[in-house]
């Protein structure tokens, strides 16, 4: 823009009105507004819209890796809905997401309230709590996997030596409920800092006068939490739950590394099943259909939550 105007200035000496007119045009609110979103728009159209369109096309065709497909309408969707493994995956996804998000919400608020207090080493503690969010997931899940190993599990070792479990302890990744517990635990571990830090930011923004007023009214700490903190946190919570739901629903790495969907598909999520069918198995059409199944559901959740946020 700056260069452009200078060029115009140089060229337009004879007709000074031209530059002025251009500037006037550019200074209009709607022109400026469109101008600023143009780069983002271009990016989304070129690099997101096209791949997304292709994915939708994949899902509507019998596309196999390495051979072009034919349009089959909703055939893939019909097929996967009828498949027991997919039905199990839908169930798993809801169990996984709802439990993980619930834990992250409760623990996240709790942790944020703790971090809000004045500690010695406050910075250090805040930094330490953020660590799980920061370590590359692809590597941290490997560490968890090693911790849950059937033979060398440090979790079991500790529990046995503390006398909580009797040896050899549960086989974390091989038994249905334990495996689900394990993947949820890792997801909570990873997502909790994100939750806590955003809620912490919300807490910081609550004006102190509100608490003082509540105290004058004789509210205890629980009362202050219920009647001041929680209502004022609601918009922040709505946002963070929204994002967390999206992150959790679309989780891939944890299950892929820890259980590969096992035992007997009881931990498969949309993303892992889609990857398994579409890439490992080569059935791109079905893989795309499985992963796109997520989209309308997420869109519905987001629609409701966005409405709620806007109203706030």
């Amino acid at each position: 823009m700056a260069v452009g105007s200078r060029v115009l200035e140089a060229a337009g000496l004879a007709r000074p009105g031209r530059l002025a007119r251009l500037r006037e045009w550019w200074e209009q609110e709607h022109v400026f507004g469109y101008g600023l979103i143009l780069p983002a728009l271009l990016l989304i159209v070129c690099l997101v819209a096209y791949p997304f369109g292709m994915s939708v096309y994949f899902s509507l065709s019998d596309y196999w890796v390495g051979s072009p497909g034919r349009f089959v309408g909703l055939g893939n969707f019909r097929n996967i809905i009828g498949n027991e493994i997919f039905q199990r995956t839908v169930y798993n996804s809801f169990v996984f997401t709802s439990i993980a998000v619930a834990f992250k919400t409760v623990l996240g608020i709790w942790l944020a309230m703790l971090l809000f207090r004045n500690f010695r080493f406050k910075r250090l503690i805040r930094g330490a709590v953020l660590l799980p969010w920061v370590i590359p997931t692809a590597l941290s899940t490997l560490a968890w996997w090693w911790m849950f190993d059937s033979l060398y599990s440090v979790v079991n070792w500790t529990a046995i030596h503390l006398g909580i479990m009797s040896p050899p302890g549960p086989n974390w990744l091989g038994m249905t409920n334990y495996a689900m517990t394990a993947v949820i635990a890792v997801n909570v571990w990873r997502g909790l800092p994100f939750f806590a830090i955003i809620v912490l930011a919300g807490l910081v923004s609550i004006p102190r006068e509100y608490y003082e007023a509540a105290q004058v009214d004789g509210a205890g700490s629980w009362g202050r939490f219920r009647h001041v903190t929680l209502p004022l946190l609601r918009p922040v919570l709505a946002v963070v739950i929204l994002f967390s739901t999206i992150f959790t629903f679309a989780d891939f790495n944890i299950v892929r590394v820890l259980t590969r969907g096992g035992p007997v598909n009881t931990t498969h999520l949309f993303a892992t099943l889609a990857y398994q069918v579409g890439l490992d198995g080569g059935n791109l059409g079905q893989g795309a259909a499985i992963s796109l199944f997520l989209f309308p559901m997420l869109a519905a959740i987001v629609f409701v939550q966005l409405r709620y946020i806007r109203r706030e």
């Binding site: 190993d149 033979l151 050899p168 086989n171 990744l173 091989g174 495996a179 259980t259 096992g262």
Partner: peptide
């Protein structure tokens, strides 16, 4: 066998025999 075989990956049996179990 032991129930752990239900959770194994490709490396687990290697570890199991190398651990002398």
């Amino acid at each position: 066998m032991e129930p752990e075989v239900l959770s194994w990956d490709d490396a687990s049996n290697n570890r199991c025999i190398l651990a002398g179990k």
